Amino acid sequence: MDNALMIGLSRQLTLRREMDIVANNIANASTPGFHVESLLMRAEPAPTAEAQDGPSDLQYVDAYGVGRDFSEGSLDFTGRSLDVALEGDGFFQVEAANGDALYTRDGRFRIDNEGRLAASDGALVLDDLGAPILIDPAQGQVRITEDGALVQNNAEIARLGVYRFENLAALQKSGASRYTTMEDNPAEIATEIAFRQGYVETSNVQPILELTRMIETMRAYSSVSRFLSQGEELSRKAIERLGRV
């Protein structure tokens, strides 16, 4: 295949991937704790097809990963006593159904049927020692202090576990605005953090910017498509002329 066509196709593949990411950002613009994503791209050198003249190598487009903006979203007041938002660098720790530890900024909590503090989908919220938090509703309303203590009847019953990571880029997405980590990127207790009871952190997606990115991506894809069509037409005409010689 012609070198120009190969370059164009490589660009189209990355543009399709970028469109998927932008569409996912827009779909999660109202998802609490969601972090906006972007496609990471680079030029990938490769040898050309054999030719008498022309460049010795080409620069293809390669998507090598997805970047995430971990900046804080705005705080949305809900008034619910078990909703908690974080201000600062840190993540709540919840326990997945298989027992794995997951990390999230989504602080929409509730009490499950067994009296445990749980996320909106039932995942258990863990305290600063990595254990489930038990709450007895009969003891009155829970107050959450700015340093993460859960208080009932003026007595501390637990403390929310919040963790930070040295390398945020090493976090792996697991769905539902949650992340997993690897052994070489251990979770550390977050200290410079503030808890806001009755608030939920919204997504940090800026819909207008994402819509602009989507339009730019669509235009770029159309431009590459026209380039490929023109290249194919030139090749066809060249073959026809050679056939008449």
Rank of each mutant, 00 (worst) to 15 (best):
M6H: 10
L15D: 11
E18R: 08
E18S: 13
I21H: 09
I21S: 04
V22G: 01
N24M: 02
A27K: 01
N28C: 00
P32Y: 01
G33W: 00
G33L: 00
V36M: 04
E37L: 08
S38E: 13
L40G: 11
R42P: 15
A43Q: 12
A49W: 04
Q52E: 05
Y60I: 06
D62A: 03
A63Q: 07
Y64A: 14
Y64M: 14
R68T: 14
F70D: 03
G73P: 09
S74D: 12
S74C: 15
L82G: 04
D83L: 03
D83R: 03
F91H: 06
F91R: 02
Q93V: 15
E95P: 05
N98A: 05
G99N: 07
Y103G: 14
F109L: 14
F109T: 12
R110Y: 11
I111R: 11
R116T: 07
S120H: 15
G122F: 11
I133S: 06
I133F: 05
A138E: 06
A138C: 04
R143W: 09
G148P: 13
L150V: 08
V151P: 04
N154G: 15
A155D: 08
E156H: 03
R159S: 02
L160N: 09
F165M: 09
E166S: 07
N167R: 11
A169C: 01
A169M: 11
A169V: 10
A170K: 04
L171F: 06
Q172K: 10
Q172M: 06
K173P: 06
S174A: 04
Y179K: 02
Y179G: 02
M182N: 15
P186M: 01
P186R: 10
E188Y: 12
E188L: 04
T191N: 03
I193D: 05
I193E: 02
F195N: 08
R196C: 13
N204P: 10
N204W: 08
Q206N: 09
P207N: 02
I208T: 12
I208P: 05
E210M: 06
T217D: 00
S223T: 15
S225C: 12
S225H: 13
S229M: 11
Q230G: 13
E232L: 14
E233D: 03
L234N: 14
L234K: 10
R236C: 03
A238H: 10
I239E: 15
E240N: 08
